[in-house]
Simulated assay, not measured.
Amino acid sequence: MHLLIASPYQNEHLILRPGSGKAVKIPQGHFKVLEHAAAFGEPSPDWLTSVVKRAWELDLEGRPVAGNVLIRKPGLTGHSRATYEINLGCDYKCPECYLGEKRFEGLDWDGKVRMLYAVRDSGVIWFQFTGGEPLIDRDFKRAYRLANELGMMVEILSNGSSLHKPEIMDLLRELPPETLTLSLYGATEKTYEECTKTGHSYKKFCVGLDAAVEAGLNVKLSLVIIKENAHEQNAMRAWAERLGVPWSEYALMSPTIAGGAEPLANQSPAHLKERQPFTGCPAGHTFYHLNPFGLASICKVGRDPSINLVDEGASALTRLGGIADSLMLRTGGCSGCQLSGSCRVCRPMAKLMQQAEAPLKNYCQHAPKE
Rank of each mutant, 00 (worst) to 15 (best):
L352G: 01
K73C: 06
T286I: 08
P166W: 13
N218M: 05
T318E: 15
V65M: 05
I257R: 15
N362M: 15
E193H: 02
G302T: 01
V219S: 08
R344F: 09
A367Q: 14
P95Q: 10
V52M: 11
L48V: 08
W56Y: 10
G294T: 02
H79S: 09
F129I: 05
F278D: 07
C334R: 07
P45E: 07
S183A: 09
A187Y: 00
A314Y: 08
D110Y: 00
E167I: 01
A270L: 15
L88K: 05
G284V: 07
L272H: 13
C343Y: 12
F129H: 04
H289R: 03
G75D: 03
D137H: 14
H30E: 10
P263M: 04
V33Y: 08
L360V: 13
E105M: 01
P45T: 10
G100K: 04
H231W: 04
Q128V: 11
R275M: 13
L295Q: 15
N68Q: 13
P166N: 11
V310H: 03
P134M: 06
S306M: 01
N266M: 13
A314V: 09
Q267T: 15
L243A: 02
D170P: 00
L4S: 00
G131A: 06
Q233V: 12
Y92G: 04
Y9N: 11
K93L: 12
G313N: 06
L163T: 02
L146C: 03
E101P: 04
S340G: 15
K300D: 09
T331Q: 15
V154C: 09
P269H: 09
S161M: 12
L58Q: 06
P45G: 07
W247S: 14
F205E: 03
